[in-house]
């Protein structure tokens, strides 16, 4: 049982404050959704928690099982169990998915420990079967020339292989047609377990029809202005973001 605590977090890009005092706790086994309009700080939150160097945390804290992760490098946070599924995954020309994941798995092993290649491929292929992926996929260079759907599936495959404690999923539904969305959602659902906490960031309600959250939070101007269960997402869908602006945001 693990716990991710975001406490009164303030994040800036350069001089500009983006996240302005956000508090949220995610426990293993829970799926949280953060919804909100563009430019409200959702992606900034995810990247800041993962340790992106362009984002400055000006106050507040992020604790993983009670220990602050803010002093940790992005790769240390990753190895501690934090996974960010990117909205725009980077292309790494010439590096195959299989080799990349192999390096990432090796990075989690102790000094002097050697990765068992046969066991690694066995596990990789079983995860690909779980996600209904073609094995040829792993010999392609990471995200290089991938379609939007392929990029997102590649993120899910990495998540499956790295078995994080917490996954931050940044606009996983963006750029996907309905078929691709269903495939990706099936993948995430297949990975849902009591060992994994998920924080899903989305602009639209439609993703939440496929990945049903336990908790829904509405974000506005760098803060959470309302929290509830999955019915909040439907209410938001029905009433629109104007409702948030007029009803939920304190004047």
């Amino acid at each position: 049982m693990s716990q991710l605590d975001i406490k009164d977090l303030h994040v800036s890009i350069g001089e500009k404050a983006i996240v302005k005092g956000l508090t949220l706790t995610v426990r293993s086994g829970e799926v949280h959704a953060i919804m909100g309009p563009n430019g409200t700080g959702k992606s900034t939150l995810a990247k800041a928690v993962a340790g992106h160097p362009s984002y400055t945390i000006t106050s507040g804290d992020v604790l993983l099982d009670g220990r602050s992760i803010l002093v940790m490098e992005p790769d240390e946070r990753a190895r501690a169990g934090l996974f960010l599924a990117f909205q725009y995954p980077s292309e790494i020309p010439g590096v195959s998915i299989a080799n990349f994941l192999r390096a990432a798995v090796q990075a989690r092993m102790g000094e002097g420990e050697e990765l068992d290649a046969a066991a690694y491929y066995k596990r990789l292929y079983s995860k690909m079967d779980l996600l209904k992926m073609d094995r040829k996929f792993t010999s392609r260079a990471i995200n290089d020339g991938f379609s939007g759907g392929e990029k997102k599936r590649c993120e899910i495959l990495q998540m499956a292989m790295l078995e994080p404690k917490f996954a931050l999923m940044d606009e996983t539904d963006s750029g996907l047609d309905i078929d691709a969305l269903r495939i990706v959602a099936d993948g995430v659902n297949a990975l849902r377990s009591t060992n994994l906490g998920v924080l899903m960031i989305t602009h639209y309600q439609r993703l939440l029809g496929y990945i049903v959250p336990d908790h829904v939070h509405v974000m506005w101007d760098g803060r959470i202005v309302k929290s509830g269960d999955k019915s909040l997402a439907l209410e938001l869908e029905a009433k629109g973001y104007d409702w948030v602006k007029t009803e939920l945001v304190p004047a």
């Binding site: 993962a50 340790g51 992106h52 160097p53 362009s54 490098e73 992005p74 790769d75 946070r77 990753a78 190895r79 996974f83 960010l84 990117f86 995954p89 980077s90 292309e91 790494i92 990349f100 994941l101 390096a103 990432a104 990075a107 989690r108 990495q158 790295l162």
Partner: peptide
Amino acid sequence: EEQIFYMQQRGLT
């Protein structure tokens, strides 16, 4: 920087 961050986020130094 984005590429490096992406790979670091997967646990690579």
